[in-house]
Structure formats: structure tokens, C-alpha cells
Nucleic acid binder design. Structure first.
Lengths: 225, 225
DNA sequence: GCGATCACGGTACTGGGTACCGTCTAGGCT
DNA sequence: AGCCTAGACGGTACCCAGTACCGTGATCGC
């Protein structure tokens, strides 16, 4: 009859008890007892009491890395967007449990920090791949970090709206996600835009008045020749 | 003879012991004993063993908030840059202790997370003020978050370079900081650019070849008149 | 000089996390 | 079948961070 694994029983027991008594008032021994396992087994499955709240984090992280690994500089935009979309979709699939976790983490500072630590791992994964696409030079590292942070921030912004119920359906959430990714892309210069590889990016000139224009015009014509 | 305060003695004792035996092998009782105080007093001064590693964090956070509070949308760019500069300058003033802390946090995961939590507080402070300058509307929140994250990322990038010794002098660090802030500003649209309030921002023209230029030149002259 | 306040140190307790050990079970080999 | 190894499990004992509480001594205002 497909007995749920010990790991799943622990997660279920933990979420039940956290809902009943709150996070702090629940001990690991309580969770283990309800799940029908020893306290030792709990810590074999989860590194800490906090980790049981984010049971799929590790798996999600490897999924992101796998998606990013298949992208190239030419397909960076869609690769990054899809990798972030994997996370969003996972939460949408989780449904009510994701929202319960959100309400729980909002009230428990320790869990907020744990969540941030997880997000940080996402950022580092994105940074690593984007940095690679940018050539891996020290000068491009800051740009890679800026882009990675922007992508993760955009994703989290939409996810948070959905978790709070501001976006009712999964379809709405995905639409908002596409909009957020578009806004993020408009703020950062990710490789892989149309034509970006074909001709070099134009330089930017700031022309304040007609005198500026007349002064610069010869050099402009020269560059365009 | 200006006896050092109990708080300072605790910080000094902690850094000494962490250097001698490492973070994990040092207990709070050890620190308190060397500082000549009771274990209770340690926890009155610092919320946790981790907090003693970042003793000036709270003070720094209020300094940032104070600087940002004096800025307006017109002075946003310089306000944000200076607020971030306060943090950099604090680390530069700290000198060798900052570098010791950096080496310590790099080897202790718990301290890395504590540091990230502190950085997160910076981000939230920046976000709150920038969001206010943008009108405080829900639509402008994502932009505010993107800008705040970019500023903090740029700052951290330079700070990390200095901590690692890639930037030898404080002057070099400040110069790199100005460059990083310029790059950040080029990626995000912060209110308060020169002339932004006086005359509207110039439109951006993409001129790919001489034919483009000739075609657009009359309109450009017209706009500048 | 005298009571109120407060910072301090000491004690006792809870609970997360680790180390270790004995046991039970699931296979692989002869 | 019988043996043997590996691995998962539960139990016990321990360490230490963090909290609650209490008694005490110093400092200040009246």
C-alpha cells in the first residue's frame, strides 16, 4: 500500500505539530515520536530542525544547476528565466503547503534566516553560470552578481505575491513572472539578446546641447564608417 | 587610565580565542572568563555567540538609515552612494580586524549566515527608502528591490576585494567603490540624476550606421534646440 | 544616610546537535 | 542453508548555546 517513507512521515509530522503548537514549542523529540522514528533518525534525514521546513531545497538546487548547465551564452536569457521558473513552478505545485510554510517562516526569525540562506545558494548558482558565460574574468564578476541578484529578486517578488494570495491562480503567477523577468532583463545586460553576438553593442553618448552635437559629430561619423 | 568597557573586553577576548582555537572550539564561557565577566553578562551584551563577531552592526545600520533619511528623490543617487560608502569606510577604519573577521567567517558557515542576515538588513533599509522615493506604490516595489540589491551587491563586491587584499590601500578601495557605484547606476534607473528633475531625461537613440545618423540628425538638432 | 534602581554574577534548566554503541535486517557468497 | 558484511535504526550519554530567576553590591537621588 505504498507506505510513506520515514522522511515523508517526519515532514508531515513536523508540519502538523508546527501548526498545532507553533515552531518553538515543538521539540525534535515530539516530531520523531509522532513520525514513529527515533530522534537519531530525524537528524540523519535533516541536518537540523530548521531544515525539515524546506525538505525539497537540495533537490531544487540541483535541478536549477542542471538547467543552467544546458544553456550557452547565446541562450542565456531563456536559460536563466527557465531555471528561475523551475523554482516558481515547484512552489505552485506544492500549493497549500507552500503557503503554510510561508506563514510559518514569517513568524519565526530563525526560519527566515534559513530561507535566506537557501536563496543565497540559488544566487551563487546563478552567479557561477552567468559569470562563466561572461568569460569568467574578474572584471565580469560584478556584472554576473548584479544579474544573478536581479533575477532571483524578480523571482522572489512574484513568488511572494503568490504566497500572500495577491495572485490567485498559477496562471496569474506565471504571467506575473514573465513580466518580472522582462523588467529584470530591461535593467541588466544579459548575453544572448537578439543580435548582441552579431554586432558589438553601441557606445552611449550623452549629448546635452547643439554644441555638444557639433563637436562630437565628426567622431560619430568616424566610428560608424 | 580609560579602562576598556566590558563590551570591548569581551570582543577582544572573543577574537583572541577564535584566532587561537577556532570558533567552534571556543565556548562562551571561555570568552567570558578571559574578559573577566560572567557568562550572563556576555549574553546581556550580545544576543548570541555569533553576534560578538559583528559588534558594530547595529550602530552601522542606524548610521545608514540616518544618512538615507536626509536624502530626497532629487538627491537619491548621492545619498545612496554615500550611505553605502559609510559601511565601506567603517571597514576601512577597522583595518586588520575586518580582515581577520573575514578570514574567520569564510571558514565558519554559521558566521557566513549571520553575516548574510546582516547584509539583508542593509538591503531592507535601502529598499524602504528607495521605495519611498519612487512613490511607495506596489508597482514600484520590485524596482526598489532591484536597485537596493544592486547597490548592496556593488558595495560588497568592492569590500570583498579589499578584504582579500586585492585592493591594497584605502584610497584604492574608495576609487573602486566609486567605479562600482557608477556601474550600478548605469544598470538601474535611480531618481535624482543630474538634471533629471529640471529637464526630462534624454531619449536613447541607437544609431547603427551612417544612414541612420543622417536620417535622425534633423530630429536630434530639433530636440536640442 | 537611606531606600530604589540597575548592572552584575551564579545557578539551574531546556533543548538542539553530536558521538558512540548495540541490534536488527537485507542481501551476497560459498 | 548457513555465514558474513553493510547499512539503517534506536537508545544513551554528553556538550553547549540560550533563558529564567535570584541574590548581591554599587550608584544615585532625596
Amino acid at each position: 500500500m505504498a507506505e510513506p517513507s520515514a522522511r515523508e512521515r517526519i515532514v508531515d509530522a513536523a508540519f502538523e505539530l508546527f501548526a498545532e503548537r507553533g515552531y518553538d514549542a515543538t521539540t525534535v523529540e515530539d516530531i520523531a515520536a509522532r513520525a514513529g522514528v527515533g530522534r537519531t533518525t530525524f537528524f540523519r534525514q535533516f541536518r537540523s530542525k530548521e531544515h525539515v521546513v524546506f525538505p525539497d531545497h537540495e533537490q531544487l538546487l540541483t535541478a536549477i544547476a542542471a538547467r543552467l548547465a544546458t544553456a550557452t551564452p547565446r541562450t542565456a536569457v531563456v536559460g536563466v528565466s527557465e531555471a528561475a521558473g523551475l523554482v516558481l513552478q515547484h512552489y505552485l505545485d506544492e500549493g497549500e503547503r507552500a503557503r503554510r510554510r510561508y506563514r510559518l517562516t514569517r513568524t519565526v526569525p530563525a526560519l527566515q534566516e534559513r530561507e535566506r540562506a537557501g536563496i543565497r545558494q540559488y544566487e551563487r548558482t546563478f552567479t557561477r553560470h552567468i559569470h562563466g558565460w561572461l568569460g569568467g574574468t574578474p572584471e565580469s564578476l560584478l556584472r554576473a552578481e548584479l544579474i544573478a541578484n536581479a533575477v532571483v529578486t524578480g523571482h522572489n517578488h512574484v513568488l511572494r505575491a503568490w504566497l500572500r494570495g495577491h495572485l490567485a491562480t498559477a496562471g496569474e503567477a506565471r504571467r506575473a513572472f514573465r513580466a518580472a523577468m522582462a523588467e529584470v532583463e530591461s535593467h541588466v545586460d544579459l548575453p544572448g539578446r537578439e543580435g548582441a553576438a552579431a554586432d558589438p553593442l553601441p557606445a552611449v553618448l550623452v549629448v546635452r546641447d547643439a554644441a555638444d552635437l557639433d563637436r562630437l559629430l565628426p567622431q560619430i561619423r568616424d566610428l560608424l564608417a
